[in-house]
Nucleic acid binder design. Structure first.
Length: 376
DNA sequence: AAATGCTCCAACCGCGGCTGA
DNA sequence: TTCAGCCGCGGTTGGAGCATT
């Protein structure tokens, strides 16, 4: 590859792994764990550097890797997380169980980025190239989004580290010969276990303190009726990530879309929360709007809605007409979410028409494509 | 059938952060 | 405090396989 041959100069093999090498590595790790990667190759009888072994294991041989096509929900998650935290693949992978950071990175570079580009959405900023912002208000939103992105980014990194540290603790207290798993992609799964562990883990306290630093407000109800408890860990059960501070109204709205539309409309009956309390959550909602656009276009392109549950079999393929009707309802849901946020925050609902226009423009863009064919 | 172009992904490299001496 | 060793992450690449001409 025209780079300095770090392994070659030591007489070590590079390039594609043979089935025999895979078997050696698998067998060794199953019996001994990987321990020090640097020390592993000679013990396992491999003419490879430790780095190469680690990569092979974490990206390919690990038994808990899910391979194959990404689901629509996984697409959503990647887009939304990327909109928030950028190219932090390992952090994104912690929210996609059984997917490796490398796989997500490849998928982004080969599929998602291109599709967003074709949609006219900048894959780096997640904004439409001809975004119709509203002057200073838009700049303010952008600043808030940036603030939240930094917050979430730091939180995800802390979460990933927490998972890694806790894994070491768990392993050290169990069978020393237990299979060591060191990839980040299983972090979400592992994180559930860890976060249900008895309180007292120092790392958890650190994370709590970290969250408390930013979230000093009292318990509030956000636009999606999820209770967020400021200064302490929130309810885990409702969230995709065990410690996520975010929620994505459109995800819930789509799983399935119609039922959740009812749920969201039901918010009218909920007590209105003071604007200062909701502000942060509202900002997140707006921060995800552009990512929502891409996601929405997805569903129209595919003509499908995911069940949202990997356990269920298959997606429902809808006729174009039905799809359009559902898209209109979906728009209402999204507009409602964002306009509710706007109402509660500071503009007395002034976002409503603007957001409706925004989503209508996305729908028009999508619907302008030939019937039943991708828009890109 | 052959040549060419394109897509995809496994695997590499370099850098930065962490840890222990 | 410094430094060396190690690990993990993100960016990048080579090449296999597929599609198109």
């Amino acid at each position: 590859m025209g780079r300095s041959p770090c392994c070659e100069k030591m007489g070590l093999k590079k390039g594609p792994w043979t089935p025999e090498e895979d078997q050696k590595l698998l067998t060794y790790i199953e019996h001994h764990g990987h321990g020090s990667w640097r020390a592993l190759p000679p013990k396992a009888g491999l003419q490879r550097c430790g780095k190469s072994c680690r990569l092979r294991w974490t990206n390919y041989l690990r038994p808990d890797i899910k391979r194959g096509k990404f689901s629509l929900q996984e697409d959503q998650s990647i887009i939304q997380l990327h909109a928030l935290i950028g190219n932090r693949w390992s952090a994104i992978a912690t929210h996609l169980p059984k997917r490796t950071d490398n796989e997500i990175k490849n998928y982004w570079n080969t599929h998602l980025k291109k599709r967003l580009t074709k949609l006219g959405i900048d894959p780096m900023t997640h904004k439409p190239r001809h975004h119709h912002g509203s002057g200073s208000g838009h700049a303010k939103d952008a600043a808030n989004i940036s603030h939240m992105a930094q917050w979430e980014s730091a939180r995800l990194e802390a979460e990933a580290r927490l998972v890694r540290e806790s894994k070491l603790q768990v392993i050290s207290t169990t069978n020393p010969n237990h299979l060591l798993i060191s990839s980040s992609s299983d972090a979400t799964h592992q994180g559930h276990v860890i976060n249900k562990a008895p309180p007292g883990l120092p790392c958890l306290d650190v994370l709590r303190a970290w969250q408390g630093t930013w979230s000093t407000k009292p318990t509030v109800r956000n636009v999606n009726s999820t209770i967020i408890s400021g200064g302490s860990m929130m309810s885990m059960d409702d969230l995709e990530s065990p410690t996520s501070t975010l929620n994505f109204p459109h995800i819930n709205a789509l799983n399935p879309p119609m039922q959740n539309a009812v749920n969201i409309n039901g918010l009218n009956e909920n007590p209105v929360v003071p604007s200062e309390v909701l502000q942060d959550n509202v900002n997140v909602t707006f921060g995800c709007m552009d990512a929502c656009a891409a996601t929405l276009a997805w569903f129209v392109e595919e003509g499908t809605f995911s069940s949202g549950n990997d356990e269920e079999v298959g997606n429902v393929i809808m006729p174009a007409g039905v799809s359009n009707i559902m898209m209109e309802d979906f728009t209402d849901v999204l507009v409602y979410n964002s306009s509710l946020a706007g109402e509660i925050s500071d503009n007395g609902g002034s976002h409503f028409e603007e957001n409706r226009s925004y989503w209508d423009s996305i729908l028009n863009l999508v619907n302008a494509s030939p019937s039943g064919s991708p828009v890109f």
